[in-house]
Amino acid sequence: MKSTFVVPDGLEPAQRRSDALAPGDRMPSHNPMCFGCGPDAPNGLHLDARAGEGMAITGEMLVEPHFEGGPGMIHGGILSSAFDEIMGMNVMLMGVTAVTAVLDVDFAKPIQLGSRLRFSTEILGTQRRKIYVRAVAHLIDGDGNSGGDTGEEVGGAHGLFIIVDPSVHFRESRAKSQFASPEFGA
């Protein structure tokens, strides 16, 4: 896949927090009404993300009818949101709060409604407060196996996330949320 995103040389390896979830454990939602990871968001993505080995996580989602853009296809903004969410959840393994600064998405193939997507992400490294992450999406069949014979990627993304102090970053907006976890701006 092509990308104009430039990952700088000399990144520091990301460090997994010692009390991070074990591989296979479900990543928690930071807000039950979050469009991406919230289990209670009525029209949300309902991403099911799991901690992986090292600095990686995986996730799955169903491409539901209300995600339609072009006839019978996922809207590009929905796929972008899914990449943003899964990569943002990846930084939770570091035990930090980070926000998206740059999101670069490659729409490799059309994705039909009713498809299941599997996302794989990994943190590429850090540079001071910056965290560089990449992700890919594959179609999977109903049994969770790679769809098709090639396992071809249907999309990819790179992201730059900036570590923030949640008590400062969310100070004013937190009061408008009835659902955010206490650590997000308490």
Rank of each mutant, 00 (worst) to 15 (best):
V154P: 08
L47G: 00
N145T: 04
T150A: 15
G95C: 06
T121I: 03
G36N: 03
D84H: 06
S177Y: 10
V164N: 10
L124R: 04
P23E: 14
N90V: 02
R129K: 07
E68A: 06
H46D: 11
I163E: 15
Q15R: 15
F107N: 00
V168W: 03
A20K: 05
R134H: 10
P166V: 12
V91R: 13
M87Q: 11
E12N: 15
T58Y: 10
V136F: 05
G36W: 04
I74M: 09
P42R: 15
T121F: 03
P28I: 10
V91C: 15
R129L: 09
I78P: 02
G155D: 02
K176F: 13
S120Y: 06
G54V: 11
S80V: 01
E172V: 09
F83I: 12
E12R: 14
V154K: 08
C34A: 10
I74F: 00
L113A: 11
A180I: 12
P166W: 12
S173T: 12
L45R: 02
G147Y: 12
H75T: 00
I123G: 06
L139T: 06
G151W: 15
H46P: 06
G38P: 05
P13S: 14
G77T: 07
V168G: 12
E153Y: 00
R134I: 00
F5H: 10
G142C: 09
A101M: 08
M73Q: 14
H158G: 00
S181A: 11
G144D: 07
G159I: 12
E60W: 02
D48R: 05
P8F: 07
F184A: 13
P71S: 12
I86R: 11
L160F: 12
R171N: 07
G77Y: 07
E152F: 08
N90H: 06
R17I: 05
T121R: 00
R16C: 04
M87S: 04
V102M: 14
S115P: 05
G69Q: 08
A98D: 07
P65G: 13
K2N: 07
V96S: 04
M61W: 02
H66N: 13
A22E: 15
P110Q: 10
R128S: 04
D149L: 14
R26G: 01
G156V: 00
H158A: 02
E153G: 00
L11S: 02
H169L: 11
P65Y: 10
K130L: 09
I140R: 06
F5M: 08
N90Y: 03
N90M: 08
E153C: 01
S29G: 07
L79I: 01
L47N: 00
H66P: 01
R17Y: 07
I78S: 01
V63A: 05
K109T: 04
A135F: 00
H138G: 01
A175E: 09
M61F: 02
L117A: 01
E60G: 05
R26W: 08
A101V: 14
R17E: 03
L103I: 15
G72R: 01
A49Y: 09
D9T: 12
K176I: 05
S146D: 13
G148Y: 04
H30R: 13
Y132M: 03
G95Y: 11
A51S: 14
E53Q: 14
D9G: 12
G76I: 06
P166Q: 08
N43R: 13
G144M: 01
D84C: 02
P42N: 11
L113K: 08
F107S: 02
L47Y: 04
P65Q: 13
A108H: 10
D143E: 15
G125A: 03
